[in-house]
Simulated assay, not measured.
Amino acid sequence: MTQAGRVAAVGTSRGTRRRGRTGRATWTAAVLAAALTASLTAGCSSGGERDDGRSPSGTASGERTPPAAGGVLAVKIDNARKARPHTGLDAADIVYVEQVEGGLSRLLAVYATHLPETVGPVRSARESDLELLRQFHRPTLAFSGAQSKLLPLVDEAPLRAEPPGRTREAYFRGNDRPAPHNLYLRPDRLLPATPGPRALTTTGFRHGPAPAGGSPETSRTVRFPAASFTFTWSAHRDGWLVAMDGTDARTTDGQRLAPATVVVQHVHIRTSDFHDSNGNVTPYIETVGSGRAEVLRDGKSYDAHWKRDVATDGTRFTTGDGTPLNFADGQVWVVFVKA
C-alpha cells in the first residue's frame, strides 16, 4: 500500500474520523516501515534551507520539550504540485495561505480542536510565520527546517520549535512521492491532547450570524505570480470548494476541501533578507497593521477592514461602520494578497 493509501486508511477526514480507529494496528505497522524508510531517505530543501532532521539550534539530541499548556499546533505545509493531495488539512481550524519565493505558495495550518493522525507534507518555515504566530500563546511550530540565517530567529521566538531532529518519532517519510515532498507529521507525538477552542480566542476572529448586506458571490479567484486559488460556493457543502492552480483541492482520502469562511486579506508584502538558491528573494508578509479585506461566507462577499495593532494581538475584522464581522462556524482560510 502506498503512503497515500495508508494515510487515507487511518481516517484523516472528518467523516472517516467518526468511524473510529479500527485500523490502528495496520497503521502502527505502516509507521514502523515508514520510519525505517525515513532513516534511509534524505530530503533536501532549496535555498540553503535545512531539511536534514536537525533542530534549530543545530543539535540533533532528540530531546522532547514538554508541550505548552493550551498551545495550538501550527504546521508548515508544502503546496507544490508534487506535494498534493494534502493529508490532514481538512482537520485544521485555520489555514493561512502565504506567498513564497518565485511567486509560489505555502500553507500554515493551525490545529486546536482536532489532531488528525497524519499531517503533511511538511516543509520549511519562513520569517513571516514568526510574526503571524505571536498571536497565539506558546504555539508549537512543526516544520522541516529553515535557512541557516533564520534559525536563530526561530530559537528566539516565543514558540516551541519542532523540526524532525527534535522529536524524531513525530515524523516519517512516505514512499509515494519524491523528497522533499514526502515528509509527514504525527501530531499526537507532539501534543498529548487537543488544546481546544479556547486556544483560538487570541486570533480576534468572531463566529456568529452573518452581518447584514453583502454581495452574492459564487466564485472568487486569488492569483499569486505563480499560483492561484479559486473558491466556489457550495450550498450542499455549506462551504467554499477550493481549487489550486485550476485543479480541485482534495485530501488523500478524496474529500474536497471546503472551508466555511474565506478571508482575502490585503497586506503589505516586502522583500526580506532571505532568498533561495536561485536568488529569488523571500517575501515578508506584514500581518501587523491594517487594511482592507473581503470575507466570503454563506455564498456572499462582505467588504471588511482588518486591523492588528501589535504582533501579540489577534486580527479584528469589521464592516464599514465598525461593526465586528462574524465568520461562519467551521474552518477558516486566510489568503494574504499584496495590497
Rank of each mutant, 00 (worst) to 15 (best):
P152S: 10
T261G: 07
Q265G: 02
A227Y: 03
E217K: 04
K300V: 10
L191P: 09
A210S: 15
G254W: 04
L190Y: 11
L141K: 01
S128A: 01
G53P: 12
H137E: 04
S55M: 13
R64D: 06
R17G: 00
S57H: 10
L32N: 01
R177V: 15
A80R: 11
W333P: 01
A34W: 03
T87Y: 03
T230W: 06
G103V: 09
D248E: 10
A328P: 13
A91G: 00
H275L: 09
G330R: 10
A179C: 12
R50P: 06
T282I: 15
T318R: 07
A226G: 11
T59F: 07
R24L: 12
T251L: 07
A212T: 15
S13A: 14
T218A: 05
A125E: 10
V337F: 00
P216G: 05
P139G: 02
L183Y: 06
D298C: 09
G299P: 03
D52F: 05
S277E: 11
L32H: 01
D238I: 05
D248C: 02
L104T: 09
F274N: 02
E63V: 05
S234W: 07
P259N: 12
C44H: 11
R166Q: 14
L107E: 02
R316L: 12
D188E: 14
G11S: 07
V7D: 13
E98I: 08
M1A: 09
V122G: 01
H181N: 13
L296G: 09
R270Y: 12
S124V: 07
I94M: 05
R123V: 07
L32W: 00
K300Y: 10
L104V: 08
S228M: 08
A146E: 10
N280M: 11
T218P: 00
V267L: 03
W233Q: 02
T28M: 10
G299K: 12
P178R: 15
S228A: 06
T194Q: 15
P324K: 00
P211T: 05
G254D: 12
S144E: 08
V97E: 08
M1P: 09
S124I: 11
A260M: 08
N182Y: 04
G196R: 03
P66A: 15
R6Q: 09
L107D: 06
G47W: 02
P283E: 00
A235I: 03
T65D: 11
G11K: 01
R256P: 10
M1T: 13
A304T: 11
S39E: 14
D276S: 02
A33M: 08
P216E: 13
Y284A: 05
S148D: 13
V95H: 08
R134L: 09
T167R: 05
T247M: 06
T65R: 13
A212L: 15
H86D: 12
V95S: 03
R134V: 05
V295Y: 04
S46I: 04
F231D: 02
R19V: 02
A304N: 08
R256L: 14
D155W: 02
P178H: 12
V335C: 06
S57T: 14
S228H: 00
A328H: 08
R126E: 01
G88A: 13
T59M: 08
W27Y: 08
A125S: 15
R297W: 14
G23M: 14
T167N: 09
G213H: 00
A9S: 12
V337D: 07
V337E: 09
A69R: 14
D329V: 06
A35K: 13
Y184T: 05
V100Y: 06
F317D: 03
D321H: 01
Q135E: 07
G299Y: 04
V119T: 02
